[in-house]
Nucleic acid binder design. Sequence first.
DNA 1: CTGTTGACCAAGG
DNA 2: ACCTTGGCCAACA
Length: 93
Amino acid sequence: MVPAGRVVTYGQVARAVGVPTAARQVGFVLHGLAPEAEVPWQRVINASGGISTFKIGLGELQSALLEHEGIVFTGDRVDLRRYRWQPPTDLAS
DNA sequence: CTGTTGACCAAGG
DNA sequence: ACCTTGGCCAACA
């Protein structure tokens, strides 16, 4: 789960699940789940911090949702260094 | 089964 | 900062 006001990259998620090579499939799956999914697909963006969904028409929704969560868009992308969610390490909880 | 495409990523020019 | 190349895995024609 990704906390509100945070974002994660596809590659990051891919690695998180143990399949660093399947970043594309992450997006592909999300595409299938998007409309009725309970998952915060809106917080999943590409490694450039940009909205990948602009090309498929969800960009407007995406940006709106993220802005709604408090994320500021720097032009057509967000500040990853600031909004990127870091996966929980079982090292220090 | 083969070839192309895709909500991607990292590296090199 | 932008484009190209290689890689990865799954869905489609």
